[in-house]
C-alpha cells in the first residue's frame, strides 16, 4: 500500500528564475544540444556544446540548476566513479558492486517514512520525486579510506523532502535504512556488517542546504552500484555517511545506531565529519589520494585533506563548541 505523498509547497514548486536562465544547460543535459548541432539546426553564433565525456543514453535526467561546489577541481571520470565503489551489500571488493548489482531492481520503489512526523507511511518513489526540480551539484567525495573523488550529483536538498512530512518537535535525528533484499544483494549473505545498513544525521545536518538526496549522477540516473534509486550525499562527511538505496527514513528523538559505528565504534563515529586533524586509529586522515582526471595518473594524486572536506565555511557552525576529537 502506498499513500499519496504530501504536496510540494508552492515556494518549491514555482520555477526559479535561475531555471529559466539556465534553460540552455537543461537542453545540454538533455542531450538535445548535441543532437541539434549534429543536425545543423543551431546558428553559428551559438556557443559550442561540449561533447559530453560520457555517452548519453536512456535514463538521462533534466536539471534545473547547476552548481560547482568543488571549486572547479577536475571531475572523476564516469567509469571510475561507477566502477570503484564501496557498497558491501554487493561485495567488499571495489569492483564488486559494479559486477554484482545487475540483479538489483531499483523500480518499483517505495520509501517508508516513520517516527516523529505528522505525516508518515509508505510512499511510491514517483510521488516522492513528483514536482521536485532536480539540480546538479558537483561535490568532493572523501572516503574514510583516504581516497576521494569529484562527482556531479543530481538530486535535491533533503530538507525539501523532510519538510513535507512535517517533523514534530520531538524529531532530533533522522535515521536512514538501506533496502534489505538478500535475493538481489549477494553481499548480504556475509555478515560483514550488521545488516541492513543504517546511517543517521542530526536534524540540523539533515536540513542543511548542502545535504542532498540524490537520484542521479553525470546527468543520468544512478547506476545500481552507486545507490539507485535514491541515496544520500553529505559532502562534508566521510563517504560511508552517504547511505545508498534508501528504503526507510525515520525521525527519531535519540541518536540512531549506524552501521559502521556499531561495527567499530572506536574507528567510525556518528558524526564522521572529514577532519584531517583527527586520524583514523589505523591510518592518517591528513592527506588523500584524489581519483580524478584522465591519462597516466600514477604520480601526484595525493592532496591535503581540508577540514569538513572544504565545506567548513558552510557547515562548521553546526559543530560550534563541540570537541571534534570526542565527537569524531
Amino acid at each position: 500500500m502506498t499513500r499519496s505523498v504530501p504536496p510540494v509547497s508552492p515556494s518549491v514548486s514555482i520555477t526559479p528564475q535561475a531555471v529559466y536562465h539556465n534553460r540552455r544547460t537543461i537542453l545540454k543535459l538533455l542531450g538535445l544540444g548535441a543532437a541539434a548541432l549534429a543536425t545543423g539546426c543551431t546558428s553559428q553564433a551559438a556557443p559550442p556544446v561540449p561533447v559530453p565525456e560520457t555517452p548519453r543514453r536512456a535514463g538521462t535526467l533534466a536539471v534545473s540548476r547547476r552548481t560547482d561546489d568543488a571549486g572547479g577541481e577536475a571531475q572523476t571520470p564516469y567509469p571510475d566513479a561507477t566502477q570503484y565503489n564501496n557498497f558491501y551489500e554487493f561485495g567488499t571488493g571495489k569492483s564488486d558492486p559494479a559486477t554484482n548489482s545487475s540483479r538489483f531492481k531499483p523500480r518499483p520503489w517505495s520509501l517508508e517514512i516513520a517516527g516523529h512526523a505528522e505525516k508518515t507511511g509508505r510512499f511510491a518513489l514517483e510521488d516522492i520525486l513528483a514536482g521536485q526540480p532536480l539540480e546538479e551539484r558537483i561535490y568532493r567525495m572523501r572516503c574514510v579510506e583516504a581516497w576521494s573523488m569529484v562527482i556531479p550529483w543530481l538530486g535535491f536538498p533533503l530538507a525539501n523532502l523532510l519538510k513535507r512530512f512535517a517533523p514534530t518537535s520531538r524529531a532530533k535525528y533522522v535515521a536512514f535504512t538501506t533496502a534489505d533484499r538478500p535475493a538481489q544483494m549477494p553481499g548480504l549473505a556475509d555478515r560483514i556488517l550488521d545488516w541492513p545498513y543504517r546511517e543517521g544525521l542530526r536534524l540540523d545536518e539533515a536540513m542543511h542546504p548542502l545535504t542532498l538526496l540524490v537520484v542521479g549522477m553525470y546527468g543520468r540516473e544512478l547506476p545500481n552500484q552507486n545507490g539507485a534509486p535514491l541515496r544520500l550525499v553529505v559532502p562534508w562527511k566521510y563517504g560511508f555517511k552517504g547511505i545508498k538505496s534508501i528504503a526507510r527514513i525515520e525521525f527519531t528523538e535519540q541518536q540512531p545506531r549506524t552501521a559502521w559505528n556499531v561495527a567499530a565504534p572506536g574507528e567510525y563515529g556518528f558524526y564522521a565529519n572529514v577532519n584531517p586533524a583527527v586520524d583514523h586509529p589505523r591510518w592518517s586522515q591528513q592527506t588523500e589520494r584524489r581519483i580524478a582526471g584522465t591519462g597516466f595518473n600514477l604520480f601526484g594524486n595525493r592532496i591535503t585533506t581540508q577540514p569538513f572536506n572544504g565545506y567548513a565555511e558552510q557547515v562548521a557552525h553546526l559543530y560550534a563548541g563541540m570537541d571534534l576529537r570526542k565527537y569524531f
Binding site: K94, W147, R289
Partner: peptide, 15 residues
C-alpha cells in the same frame, strides 16, 4: 598494467 593504465581507478592502491 601500470604502463597501459589498466590498474583501474586507483592504480596506486592496486600497485
Amino acid at each position: 598494467s601500470a604502463l597501459h593504465g589498466s590498474l583501474g581507478p586507483d592504480p596506486v592502491a592496486q600497485l
